[in-house]
Amino acid sequence: MDSADTAGAAPPPVRAEITLTVNGTGHRLGVDTRTSLLDVLREELGLTGSKKGCDHGQCGACTVLLDGRRVNACLALAVAHDGADVVTVEGLGGGDGGLSPVQEAFLECDAFQCGYCTPGQLCSATAVLGEAARGWPSAATPDVADEPRLDDAEIRERMSGNLCRCGAYVNIVAAVRGAAVRGAAVREAAGTEPGILP
């Protein structure tokens, strides 16, 4: 390559070493600093449940739980989350291959059609139940100083970061409502406080 080719050329990639715990398993990874958490999950770890829809944080198909909170994995730089704990759709049901209450509710309510947005919907819904149980208000809460009631308007607002091009919204709302009722009953029976996960 002569000097004309290198003049103004992009600088070389920068690599960094990070650790991630994903669905309970620890990983040590070398990543390009530009790599998103989503690309690490899909391309490096083979966890293709999390989907790349828009890659701009607008569709929610890449939603995962990062240190217990739902985020768009496409907007998270992997290098900025060294040491993080990540749960993807593959890890929602625990290690025994079973389904979580939210996943059961999506099946029961037929809350999907093509399924592409579903992993993000499931991770988001899981976090929504935790946020509501801890009393977080939303834009649909009439008075933000009050404890919210997770009615359909609240569920629609809280799930608005997850688009479904098939339009399965009606059944998604029903599934989240069902999972919320079930989660509250389980917590009451166990006498536990709401955590980040329901």
């Binding site: 944080g57 929610g60 939603t63 990062l66 909170r69 739902r70 985020v71 768009n72 907007l75 998270a76 988001s124 976090a127 929504v128 946020e131 208000p137 939303s138 834009a139 809460t141 933000v144 809280r158 608005s160 970061g161 997850n162």
Partner: peptide, 15 residues
């Protein structure tokens, strides 16, 4: 609080 809650999505507000 109302202004913050009308911005973006739950995922983005977490980040």
């Amino acid at each position: 609080v109302e202004a913050v809650l009308t911005g973006a999505s739950g995922q983005i507000r977490n980040q």
